[in-house]
Computed example of a mutant assay.
Amino acid sequence: MLKLSILDQSPVSAGVSHREAVQQTVQLAQLADRLGYTRFWVSEHHNSQGLAGSSPEVLLSTLAARTSRIRLGSGGVLLPHYSAYKVAENFRMLEALYPGRIDLGIGRAPGGTPHTAKALRGAEANLFEGLERFPAQVSDLVGFLTDTIEPGHVFEGIRATPLVESMPQVWLLGSTGQSGVYASQVGAAFCFAHFINGAGGQQAVRSYRSSFQPSALNVVPQATVCIYVLCAETTAEAEEQATSIDLRILQMEKGEFTGVKSPKEAASYVYSDWDQTRIRDNRSRMIIGNPSQVRDGLRRIADSYGVDEVMVVTGGYRAETRRQTLELLAEMFRLRPRLTG
């Protein structure tokens, strides 16, 4: 049976405050926990009007306290901005509090504009140097989490506290094959962001598996794929709600970082020929439709990647649309009996 998981970006719809958007994420995690989803990840974005999630570590502590079973993780911590040691300590603390339920997803994207990245790293920071240091940071992070910092290393003798027997599951996230290369080198799990890049992911996962090196993290490769999903009772309803996602992605590509617009606002937006082309192309990053269409689409994407788990990014203008997607998928894939209320 295909396992389903969720990446929630705390989207901010027009007329909704950032506080409300974060509370909607908490409520969605609680619903996912009741419905039987495998894991629930939250993202990291900065200086964004349309996305409220900026601190996965803090949000995860609340989600873990308000759920009981589901795995929780970052999708992901943007490691170039931070100290690998501090990230290791943050997630060891989460693992100490909620053992066996924490995932540490790591990304290398800026999560905002270059100007915002400088605010995160310091005004004098060299942004290109941060990306160049990423492989070494990943290696250091794994060393801190597994207590395998080698003798002679600059950090020899330093241990990440609290000292706990278990550790979070480490994932590398990416929309190109390079993150898969890094994941294979350290033995981490790998999640391909199909919702960001709809091309090349299958090859990236195959390459990751073929070059995987067992480590203290994993002895066998583990991969998943993340894709936009919107499911409704009818195809017409799904297509209407999906216009909000179409417009949001288009505006992000154009540098218009606003909140999620309603289907009515999307219908009144003036689209150029280029806009229409981009919307058609971006549909390769989504699965939209009624329950049977979405079920078949998820099975196809899983088969093409050779994975037994798919992570969905739920979209739509209203929180109710995201909840409906989760409920319909849970019913279709028989995760748990459908819940209401």
Score class of each variant (00 low, 15 high):
2 L>K: 04
3 K>Y: 00
5 S>Y: 10
7 L>H: 10
8 D>V: 00
10 S>E: 03
10 S>F: 08
12 V>M: 08
14 A>S: 13
24 Q>M: 01
24 Q>F: 11
26 V>K: 01
27 Q>E: 15
32 A>K: 03
33 D>A: 10
36 G>D: 09
37 Y>V: 02
47 N>L: 03
51 L>I: 09
54 S>G: 14
59 L>R: 00
61 S>L: 05
61 S>H: 08
62 T>M: 06
70 I>P: 03
73 G>Y: 06
81 H>R: 00
83 S>D: 08
91 F>M: 04
95 E>Q: 11
98 Y>R: 07
100 G>K: 08
100 G>P: 08
103 D>M: 12
104 L>Q: 09
110 P>I: 07
111 G>A: 13
115 H>T: 14
117 A>M: 02
118 K>S: 14
128 F>M: 15
128 F>K: 15
129 E>Y: 13
131 L>P: 01
131 L>W: 00
132 E>H: 14
132 E>L: 13
135 P>G: 04
136 A>K: 12
138 V>W: 03
138 V>C: 00
139 S>L: 13
144 F>D: 02
144 F>Q: 12
145 L>G: 04
147 D>W: 12
152 G>R: 07
162 P>G: 14
163 L>Y: 14
164 V>G: 11
167 M>W: 09
169 Q>G: 07
172 L>Y: 08
174 G>F: 05
182 Y>S: 05
188 A>L: 11
190 F>M: 08
196 I>S: 05
199 A>H: 02
207 S>P: 05
210 S>Y: 09
215 S>C: 03
217 L>W: 06
219 V>S: 15
222 Q>K: 15
230 L>N: 04
235 T>K: 06
237 E>M: 09
254 K>I: 04
255 G>D: 01
256 E>Y: 01
261 K>P: 00
268 S>K: 05
269 Y>K: 05
269 Y>M: 09
273 D>N: 09
273 D>M: 05
274 W>V: 12
283 R>T: 10
285 R>E: 06
288 I>S: 02
296 D>P: 02
296 D>L: 14
297 G>Y: 07
302 A>L: 04
303 D>T: 15
305 Y>I: 11
308 D>T: 13
310 V>S: 10
313 V>K: 10
314 T>A: 06
320 E>V: 12
327 E>D: 00
330 A>I: 02
337 P>S: 02
